[in-house]
Design a protein around this nucleic acid. Structure first.
Lengths: 153, 153
DNA sequence: CCTGAAAAGAACTTTCT
DNA sequence: AGAAAGTTCTTTTCAGG
């Protein structure tokens, strides 16, 4: 993991369909070298996945909700169960275990408020450790991304 | 946008490095047809981008913060300025304009608490409309993704 | 209009220096 | 790491439903 790797990462985390030759030109390397580094980054797990980002607007009925969860006590066993629950639920996009006003924050997608209510109800039913759930409805996603800020050399 | 497109999307939003032939086999189409559909989905904007997901743990010092913002009034002009600010700040990963307890929710990455504090201070300095900022520190990201739930036919 | 199959082109992988 | 040969994937083209 040197400066060149970071430069390559900075590019592919915005567009992983970039051709190796194009990347090579901007980082000042040969195409072969770029591919080797990319392969190494993949197998090392630095590049976790390469995914297509779909515009939620293109999918009929996708609303975003941000839920702050407060739990009974920091019960780690139940927390793990909740984690698995979220893993198995496609509607739960993101789940963060936090410290602050809430214990957990979840980003949930649903076709409408009714569908969200059903997901939220199921979530609370299956995870009794959840004491309180505060929901914010997303009116507009101003920025959505998972890019990691990479300090340039 | 038919059932086959949705099937293709369901695959590439998890792995856009999949070969067309592999996709073709699972959706029951030829490789050519898959590529044509992928190209159409790209130019139609359904596929917004294809990105590499980087493991934040691999990057030295990446902490995640979730900030709930309360603003003075729903001042749309200032909001747009805030949106541009977020767009230009690599540390702001996500920004949602919401209704509920907060007005906006931001997901911010920083190398440590000090760095976060500087970003937060700059954010409030440059955007006087922000009245209050409630931060939750992410102890662990249980699930992180941008996958859209695609109802199967 | 969209599919599938084959030819042409481009990209990636491997090997060697 | 870079360059060239070999392999694989993608793109184009064309015939058919």
């Amino acid at each position: 993991m040197d400066h060149l790797d970071r430069k390559i990462l900075a590019i592919v985390q915005r567009d992983c369909a970039s051709k190796a030759e194009a990347i090579a030109e901007t980082v000042g390397l040969s195409a072969s070298a770029v591919q080797r580094r990319l392969r190494a980054l993949r197998s090392a797990g630095v590049i976790r996945a390469e995914v297509a980002v779909i515009d939620p607007k293109a999918i009929a009925g996708t609303m975003t909700f941000i839920a702050g969860l407060e739990i009974e006590r920091e019960n780690y066993g139940a927390l793990q169960k909740l984690r698995r629950w979220a893993e198995g639920c496609d509607h739960v996009q993101q789940l963060y275990y936090v410290t602050g006003g809430f214990d957990l924050v979840a980003i949930i997608l649903a076709s409408d408020v009714e569908a969200y209510d059903m997901i939220a109800a199921a979530l609370m039913r299956d995870n009794p450790l959840i004491r309180r759930m505060t929901t914010n409805v997303v009116l507009r996603a101003e920025k959505v991304g998972l890019e990691v800020p990479l300090a340039e050399e």
